[in-house]
Simulated scan of single mutants.
Amino acid sequence: MTQSARRATTRAALLAATIDSLLAQGVAGTSTRGVAERAGVSQGALQHHFPNKAQLVEAALSASLVTSLEQLLAPPYDASSAPARAAELLDRLWHFHRLPLFGAVFEMLALAQQDPVTAERTAGTLDALLARIEDAAAAVLPDDPTRRTRIRLAVAAVRGAAAVETIPGAGGSDWDLIRRGLIDVLIGEAR
């Protein structure tokens, strides 16, 4: 195995171990030492790839979320009507934002409010995800000058509703009502 292949294998093991730790313990409970142990590598090897916990967590979340989003947004969509395609896009976005990993995402959003480096990295990840959502939506929704704004509005609403869903005792977000309104927004009937 070449050195490049070993590096790629180590990096992949570290990212997978980080995701496992985030799912089991959240951001606060994840440590670089624990991730190194899960991955079967030394602490030095981990630090060679990721100098600190924030970079490790951000890289793992970004890679995992991008992969999950691309899988969820991949065609085909129901081609029967614009409302059906919009509903399917929203359902996929709702499912994505309710993945178990989003607990860690919400923790990172809270950390980003206090740490400029985390904020910059988190913003980059969110921008990359939004760009992929916009690309997928462009193939599904009617083309007009307001489509990007409508997509961003829908994504913000889905993110907010998904965040409320994670709060015990908050009563839920009434996703069905939000979804019906967002279908109209996405197909351009609610301006």
Rank of each mutant, 00 (worst) to 15 (best):
R98F: 07
R85I: 05
P51R: 15
F106V: 04
A63H: 10
R150T: 10
P76C: 08
A137F: 01
Q71W: 06
P83V: 04
G169E: 14
I151R: 05
T67A: 15
H97V: 00
G44R: 14
A136L: 08
S21M: 12
P83S: 02
A123N: 10
I183S: 10
V140C: 13
Q47G: 10
H97E: 13
D20K: 11
N52H: 12
A128S: 10
R38M: 08
L141I: 04
V164C: 03
S42V: 10
L186I: 01
Q47D: 07
S62L: 09
Q43I: 10
T9Y: 02
L65V: 06
A17Q: 05
L56I: 09
S173C: 15
G103N: 12
R179G: 06
R148C: 13
A162T: 08
A190L: 15
L56F: 11
A157D: 10
S31I: 05
L101N: 01
L23Y: 01
A39V: 02
P142H: 00
W94R: 13
A161Q: 11
V105A: 02
L129A: 00
L22F: 00
L111A: 11
Q47F: 14
P142W: 04
R150S: 00
I151Q: 08
A5Q: 14
A162M: 06
I178E: 11
G34A: 13
W175K: 02
V41Y: 07
F50W: 10
A154Q: 07
G40F: 10
A59W: 01
S4M: 15
G103I: 04
T146Y: 00
S68E: 13
E165A: 04
A82D: 10
I178G: 09
